[in-house]
Structure formats: C-alpha cells, structure tokens
C-alpha cells in the first residue's frame, strides 16, 4: 500500500510515467465533476504542496491566534466573559488540531509542520502580529477577525480536498459563537460608560484594516489564486470575499453605534461590489516579512511552550514504551 510519505516522495519526473498519466486523468475527472480528492488518491505534486502550505498555515494561524486572546484570560472583567474567552481560545487549539490532522493526511507529520512554524519557514495570518491592547480588542477580534475568517472559511467547506473540507465544516460550526461573542462584547461596551465606548471604537479602528487584509492581496497581486480556483480549493477571489465582508460589517457597525475608520466605503451599483478605502499593502508585506509589532513575541512564546513541554512529551512516550514492553514480556 502506498503510504502518504511514499507518495510525498514522488518527485516530478521529466517524463511522466504511465502511472502518473493515469493518475492525472483520474484527478482531472474528479475535479471536473466537483467531487472530492481523498488522501490515498493520486494527486499532482503541486496540489499536495499548495494544500499542505495553505492548510498548515491555517493551522498555525489558529495556534498563534490563541495568544493575543489568551493574554486577556487572566484579566477578563467578569467571570462570564472569562469563561467564554477560555472556551474560545480553547476552541482555537481544537481547530488547530483539526487542521493539523487534516494536513497530516497529505504526508507531512505534525511535528514537522510545527518545526516549520518555529523555524519561521511557515507563515501564519499576519493579523495575529498586532497587539491586543485593551479588553475591547477581544470584541474586535471576535467580530472582525473571526468574521473575516468565517467569510474565508465557509467556501472552504466545499474545498476539493476531502479532509480539508470536513475540518472546515466542523470549524465553521463551532466558530459561529466566536463572532457573536465578539460582537456582544463590543455592543456591551458601546452602550456602556464613555470610557468603555471609546475603548470599543479604538479597537475597531485598529483592527478594521488588518481584518480586511486577512483576505489576502488584491486579485491582481495574487498569482496563486487562479490555480487554487481551478483546483476547486478556492471558490471566490480575495477581492470578492473582501467586498462581501465590507458589505456585511458596514451594516453591522450601525447596530453597535460605532463607526468604521474608512469614509470611502460605498456600494458600486455597476459591479455589485462593496468598495473601501485603499489598504496599506506595504504594511501588510512588512508584517508578513516578520516586522510586525508582535512577530518576535508570538514566535518566542510558541517556542517556549514547545521547549518547556519537551520533557513532558518524552516522559509520556517513555512510559508508553515501558508499558508496551511489559505487555510483550507478560
């Protein structure tokens, strides 16, 4: 039986083998039928690589994304909020795990993916390199960041790679509470004391643009998007999703009684798209390149957790090995 690591070792040959040609034909047929590719199927090496990169980035984002919110667990201003926040950050660990296990089916084990994250070789969503400075950020992260993530993720439930789609279905179902709890934090603050309302507006001001950038570069600057759409991984372009999101939040912000820091938001009747002010893409690439306010801090904390846990993981493995040996002798 061809295991995933074997399949992962298949390099692109100069001359495709008969097996590869048959595999490609079968793969193309599945994609054309909008059916699903499953782990044991033959798949083009680039498809495997693209998915491994995208899915592991997604998993890393969940894991790193725990940090800005986890910072506020100990300071949450009510016990109910503390419980909700804990449950949410814990969900993110769960979502990271679902995504890592889906990625592993492509042949790269989790510890390798984790090494890629810690060495800086793998990326994660830039939004988590911004600091969570005040409590209202818990609201803005839930409403805008999780909102943008959900807008991105809902179409991924139909991604052509079976394990990815299934993981996304589970994640989307669980995340529905994340956005709502964030919105309600802001709603409570917006209707609270003047200081609370200001806190809420400040958070929205800081997270608005980075949240819009979560959809990725503009379509003209997103060369890989075309291929991902052809493979039915991606279903809508970055700009389409971003526009749809702007349309949603410009309406929702009215309920909050707050404003979005963008006076160029308008609906374009001709294109049917929501338009927004120019985003600072230079900043986006700077943060992506590791120069965001929190890149170093986030990475250090992840490495620290991993390194501090090494003796625990080793102990559990040693204990399991001992037990297995005893069972064999008995």
């Amino acid at each position: 039986m061809a295991t995933q690591t074997d399949a992962g070792d298949q390099k692109l040959h100069a001359v495709p083998s008969a097996e590869d040609e048959a595999g490609q034909a079968y793969f193309d047929k599945i994609i054309a039928e909008d059916s699903r590719i499953e782990p044991a199927d033959w798949m083009p090496e680039k498809y495997r690589k693209t998915l491994t990169r995208q899915m592991s980035q997604h998993a890393h984002s969940e894991i790193i994304g725990m940090q800005p919110e986890a910072n506020w667990i100990t300071r949450a201003p009510s016990l109910k909020r503390k419980a909700i926040l804990m449950a949410k950050v814990q969900d993110e660990a769960g979502h990271g795990l679902y995504l890592y296990s889906a990625t592993e089916t492509l042949g790269t084990p989790r510890h390798v993916l984790n090494e890629q994250l810690m060495s800086g070789k793998a990326k994660y969503s830039s939004i988590f390199n911004y600091p969570a400075n005040n409590w209202a950020d818990m609201g803005a992260i839930g409403w805008l960041v999780d909102g943008a993530a959900i807008a991105n993720q809902v179409p991924l439930c139909r991604a052509s790679y079976g394990p990815y789609g299934r993981a996304m279905v589970r994640i989307c179902k669980e995340e529905s509470f994340h956005q709502r709890q964030g919105f309600e934090i802001l709603l409570e603050l917006a209707n609270g004391t003047p200081a609370q309302k200001q806190m809420a507006q400040d958070a929205v001001n800081r997270f608005y643009a980075p949240a819009l950038m979560m959809f990725g570069p503009t379509d003209t600057d997103s060369p890989n998007s075309q291929q991902s759409m052809a493979w039915n991984i991606k279903r809508f372009s970055n700009d389409e999703l971003r526009s749809r999101f702007v349309g949603m939040i410009q309406e929702q912000v009215k309920v909050l009684g707050l404003t979005l820091p963008d006076d160029e938001i308008r609906y374009n009747e001709e294109t049917g798209m929501w338009e927004h002010g120019e985003l600072n893409w230079d900043e986006f690439y700077e943060v992506l390149a590791g120069r965001g306010p929190c890149n170093a801090q986030r990475m250090e904390r992840r490495r620290e957790a991993h390194e501090n846990g090494a003796w625990v993981r080793e102990a559990a493995a040693a204990y399991a090995a001992k037990k297995a040996q005893k069972a064999q002798v008995a």
């Binding site: 950050v89 890592y100 957790a305 501090n308 625990v312």
Partner: peptide, 21 residues
C-alpha cells in the same frame, strides 16, 4: 487558565482548558 496556549502539547491545552472551564 494561564496554561491555555502554553501547555506541553496542543491536546493538553485543550484538556487543561476544559478543567479550568
């Protein structure tokens, strides 16, 4: 609650989170 995001393994982040909750 402090352990969530700092546990020795991700599965343990979830386990300690459940206990804290």
């Amino acid at each position: 609650g402090w352990w969530i995001s700092r546990a020795p393994e991700l599965e343990e982040d979830v386990a300690l989170g459940n206990i804290a909750l």
